[in-house]
Amino acid sequence: MKYDIEFKEMVAQEAIDTNNISATAKKYGVNTNSVSKWKKELEKKLGMGEIQKTNELGNDKEVTLYKREVLELKKRLEITKSELNEAMTIIGEKDLYIKKLERSLSK
């Protein structure tokens, strides 16, 4: 089955948050290998490998929490950018429609 990117990222984020791939896969009825793959892809996209390295080195937990917060903000920024692009596309389409109406009225 083909899943859209929003679904994959939502499931992957839940797997990250719960630290339980199996339970997340079961909850959404998805193969655990797929969830594991999506989780790795999302971690790579968000740069979470850096958080894991920090944890492995035993650095300050507060730094890790701040890094997670930054990653969450980056994710929200990407969503906002996507929504802005969609809005700009709609505005562009409306502008073209208005110009067509103006041309037809001026004839």
Rank of each mutant, 00 (worst) to 15 (best):
residue 87 A to C: 12
residue 11 V to P: 01
residue 100 K to M: 11
residue 17 D to C: 03
residue 53 K to S: 08
residue 94 K to E: 07
residue 39 K to Q: 05
residue 59 N to M: 11
residue 46 L to Q: 02
residue 87 A to M: 13
residue 50 E to S: 06
residue 97 Y to D: 09
residue 1 M to I: 07
residue 47 G to F: 15
residue 39 K to I: 00
residue 89 T to D: 14
residue 94 K to M: 10
residue 57 L to T: 11
residue 98 I to K: 05
residue 104 S to A: 10
residue 98 I to M: 06
residue 81 K to H: 12
residue 103 R to T: 07
residue 55 N to A: 15
residue 9 E to S: 01
residue 71 L to M: 14
residue 72 E to Q: 08
residue 51 I to V: 15
residue 9 E to G: 00
residue 37 K to R: 15
residue 95 D to N: 14
residue 98 I to V: 10
residue 22 S to Q: 11
residue 43 E to A: 06
residue 94 K to Q: 09
residue 93 E to G: 02
residue 9 E to I: 00
residue 37 K to N: 12
residue 99 K to S: 15
residue 90 I to D: 10
residue 49 G to N: 03
residue 24 T to L: 12
residue 27 K to D: 09
residue 53 K to V: 02
residue 91 I to L: 11
residue 23 A to V: 02
residue 93 E to A: 04
residue 92 G to M: 13
residue 63 V to F: 11
residue 43 E to R: 06
residue 14 E to C: 06
residue 27 K to T: 11
residue 79 I to P: 00
residue 22 S to M: 10
residue 62 E to W: 14
residue 97 Y to S: 05
residue 10 M to S: 06
residue 31 N to Y: 09
residue 58 G to L: 10
residue 57 L to E: 13
residue 44 K to P: 00
residue 3 Y to F: 15
residue 1 M to P: 11
residue 44 K to W: 01
residue 64 T to Y: 04
residue 52 Q to N: 14
residue 80 T to H: 10
residue 106 S to D: 11
residue 69 E to P: 01
residue 2 K to V: 15
residue 78 E to I: 03
residue 48 M to F: 15
residue 105 L to V: 08
residue 68 R to Y: 09
residue 89 T to Q: 14
residue 41 E to H: 11
residue 62 E to N: 15
residue 104 S to M: 08
residue 100 K to S: 13
residue 62 E to T: 15
residue 55 N to Y: 12
residue 45 K to P: 00
residue 18 T to Q: 04
residue 36 S to C: 05
residue 20 N to M: 08
residue 37 K to I: 07
residue 97 Y to T: 03
residue 69 E to C: 06
residue 54 T to I: 13
residue 54 T to W: 13
residue 4 D to E: 10
residue 63 V to W: 11
residue 20 N to L: 07
residue 67 K to Q: 14
residue 44 K to S: 03
residue 94 K to R: 12
residue 32 T to D: 13
residue 76 R to P: 01
residue 23 A to W: 01
residue 47 G to M: 15
residue 47 G to P: 14
residue 15 A to Q: 00
residue 72 E to P: 00
residue 76 R to V: 04
residue 28 Y to A: 00
residue 1 M to T: 10
residue 45 K to A: 05
residue 107 K to G: 04
residue 22 S to W: 09
residue 74 K to R: 13
residue 77 L to W: 12
residue 95 D to T: 12
residue 20 N to C: 12
residue 85 N to T: 08
residue 5 I to F: 06
residue 105 L to W: 06
